Amino acid sequence: MPDTLKITNTLADETRYSIYQYIVKEKKQVNVQEIADQFGIHPNVARLHLTKLTDSKLVSSELENNKKGGRPARVYFPAEDPIYLSFPKQEHRLLLQWLLELVYSMEEVAIAKAKEISYQHGRAIIENITFSTQSFESKIELLIETANAIGYIPQITENEGKKNITFSIYNCPYKNQLHKHPELVCSLHESYLKGQFDALFPTNRFVQMESMQDHCNNCVYQIEVL
C-alpha cells in the first residue's frame, strides 16, 4: 500500500513533479547530470529530487558500471508498478481484473461488444466537447488534452506536406494488465483511440506501428487524415 502522504508531498514540488513527468515520458535510464542539464539545476539539487522520487517508489534506481572505468554511476528509470491514489481508497484495479477475465472467458461475442463500447466511449468524449474552431491545430490540441486527462503522455508530430499524425503513448495506464490479457487490453485501448480520431477526423487511416506487446518502448499509431 503506498504511503499517500509521502507521495503527495514528494510531487508537491513543481520541479520534482516535472522531473517525474520527464522520466516517465522519456522511458529510459537517466542520470543526475542529465536531469541537472535538462532542468538547469545544480547536480546536487537534481540528486536530491531523484532520491526523494526513489524513496517514494515513484521511480527506481540501480548502479550501472561506468564504461570508461571508475566508480559505478546511479541511473534512474520509471518504476515498474504504477502508483494509484484515491480518496477514499477504492479498488478499481481488482474490479478491472474481474471484468477483463469475464470478457476474456466469454470469447468473441463479449470481446466484440467490449470493443464497441470502448469505441463509442472514445467518440463520446470528443463529441461532448464544444469546438471553439474546427482547425486541424485545434483538434490536435483537443486530442492532447483528452489524452492527458486519462493518464496518457502523448507525443504528436505532424509530417510536413501531409496530414499524417504520429501518436505515441509512453506510459500506458493499463500496462499492469498486459501480462494476463495483452491482446484484449490493447484491442480495447485501440478501439477507444479510434473512436476519438473518428470523431475528430471522420475520414482517416488508423494504423498501429509499434506495440508494447512486441517489447517496444511505447505504442505508436500513425493516422493519415484523408
Rank of each mutant, 00 (worst) to 15 (best):
H215D: 08
P154N: 10
Q213K: 15
E80M: 13
S138E: 09
P202Q: 09
F136L: 13
F197N: 02
L99G: 03
F167C: 00
F131D: 06
D198G: 06
K89A: 09
F87W: 13
M212C: 14
G195R: 01
P78K: 11
I117K: 04
S132L: 15
L94Q: 12
G195K: 00
E108I: 12
L193D: 01
K89L: 08
T203F: 08
E190K: 07
E101N: 15
E137M: 13
G195C: 02
V185S: 07
V103W: 06
L100I: 07
M212W: 09
K89Y: 09
P82V: 15
V103F: 04
T133L: 08
Q177R: 14
K162C: 03
I144Q: 13
P173L: 08
Q120A: 03
H121M: 04
N171S: 14
T130Y: 10
L188M: 13
I126R: 04
E108V: 10
N159Q: 07
D81C: 14
R123D: 00
I129V: 11
P78F: 10
L200F: 01
L102I: 10
Y192S: 05
Q208V: 03
I83N: 12
I129A: 06
Q134N: 06
G122A: 03
K139V: 03
E137K: 15
E108T: 14
E137S: 15
N204A: 03
E116Q: 10
K194P: 04
L200K: 01
D81K: 15
E158A: 05
P154C: 09
W98I: 13
S211L: 01
K113A: 14
Q196Y: 03
P202C: 10
T203W: 05
K194H: 08
E190Q: 09
K139T: 06
S211W: 00
I150Q: 11
M106T: 09
Y104K: 12
E107V: 09
I140P: 01
R205W: 01
M209Y: 03
L184P: 05
E80R: 15
N164I: 05
I129N: 06
R123C: 01
F131S: 07
K139C: 04
F167H: 00
S211C: 05
N159C: 03
F136Q: 06
I153L: 08
E116T: 12
Q134R: 04
Y104F: 09
A124M: 07
T166I: 05
Q97C: 05
S132K: 15
Y192R: 10
N176S: 13
Y152F: 15
A110W: 02
I140F: 03
F206K: 00
L143N: 01
N148K: 15
N171R: 14
Q177A: 15
K180D: 03
Q90D: 06
Q97H: 08
F167G: 00
L188N: 02
L178N: 12
L188D: 00
E210C: 08
K194F: 11
R205L: 01
Q97I: 02
L85I: 14
S135N: 11
I140E: 04
F201W: 07
K113T: 12
A199E: 00
S168G: 05
Y174N: 10
